[in-house]
């Protein structure tokens, strides 16, 4: 391959605090996500999977290593406009990630203005159509929306900048299963339509199995294993930890 990957993470370390209380949240992590791919990061709470996303997005400044997005190296926690036109993030809890006193219109038009995109009126309508909400939702406030509708607004906000890479941090774990199905379908459709690249973090193996082609498993801040989704489905994991995770998510079996 001659084309650089959409996202390349090399020897990433992320830490919080100073010695002696320093916590190393991510240790020597390296992954590459090809353009148009959907890459899943799996692990339990505290494994560092969300921390990787946050470091890429510029929400954490205490990191070292090499981060490249679409061939451009990024530094520190400052990100320029070019970066945000390429990368956007969708957060876990749509109840927390939308400003309670900003209408859908305000949320989307602010993003469009920040990106220097004109023709706001038409764009907002199109974004709302894209995420399956429709124009009637434009002047609603978050409290007038259900959890699934809020997550659709958050996705519309991320799409407003016409990014190429979406960072998805547990986008459905705060939602009911039937709503989760709707949002996952929406994300699949959007990826196909817009040729997006996904880096998705989740603790749910069935969800990554459905959404991603390639999966990295994390434990205690380290990447334990990287595998193709087919291997995950066949249960052909190399690392004991991955096998344990697959068995545990298989579900609870009543003993005796």
């Amino acid at each position: 391959m001659t084309k650089p990957p959409m996202l390349s993470i090399h020897d990433l370390n992320v830490w919080f605090g100073d010695p002696p209380d320093r916590v190393d949240a991510v240790k020597h992590a390296s992954i590459a996500v090809a353009e148009g791919a959907s890459f899943g990061l799996v692990g339990e709470s505290g494994s560092g999977k969300s921390t990787i996303l946050r470091a890429v997005a510029g929400l954490i400044d205490s990191w070292s290593g090499n981060l490249e997005v679409a061939g451009r190296t990024i530094h520190g926690a400052r990100r320029d406009r070019q970066f945000f036109k390429t990368v956007q993030m969708v957060f876990q809890d749509p109840y927390a990630s939308l400003h309670p006193r900003h209408s859908v219109d305000a949320v989307l038009s602010e993003t469009l203005r920040l990106q220097g995109i004109g023709d706001v009126d038409r764009r907002i309508n199109r974004l709302l159509d894209d995420v399956g909400l429709g124009r009637s939702f434009r002047f609603r406030y978050p409290h007038q929306l259900s959890g699934g509708q809020r997550q659709r607004v958050a996705i519309a906000r991320a799409l407003a900048a016409e990014p190429r890479l979406l960072l998805l941090d547990e986008p459905t774990s705060a939602l009911d299963v039937s709503v989760q199905a709707e949002i996952l379908n929406l994300l699949s459709d959007l990826r196909a339509e817009h040729g997006l690249t996904y880096l998705m973090v989740t603790h749910d193996l069935a969800v990554v199995g459905h959404m991603c082609d390639r999966i990295a498993v994390m434990q205690h801040g380290r990447l334990v294993e990287e595998l193709q989704v087919e291997d995950l489905r066949r249960g052909a994991a190399q690392a004991d930890y991955t096998r344990g995770l697959i068995a545990a998510s298989g579900s609870y079996r009543a003993g005796g």
Partner: peptide, 12 residues
């Protein structure tokens, strides 16, 4: 509507 590891499908 639950995604399943053992039974992949394009759309849920």
């Amino acid at each position: 509507s639950l995604p399943r590891l053992d039974a992949p499908q394009d759309r849920l």
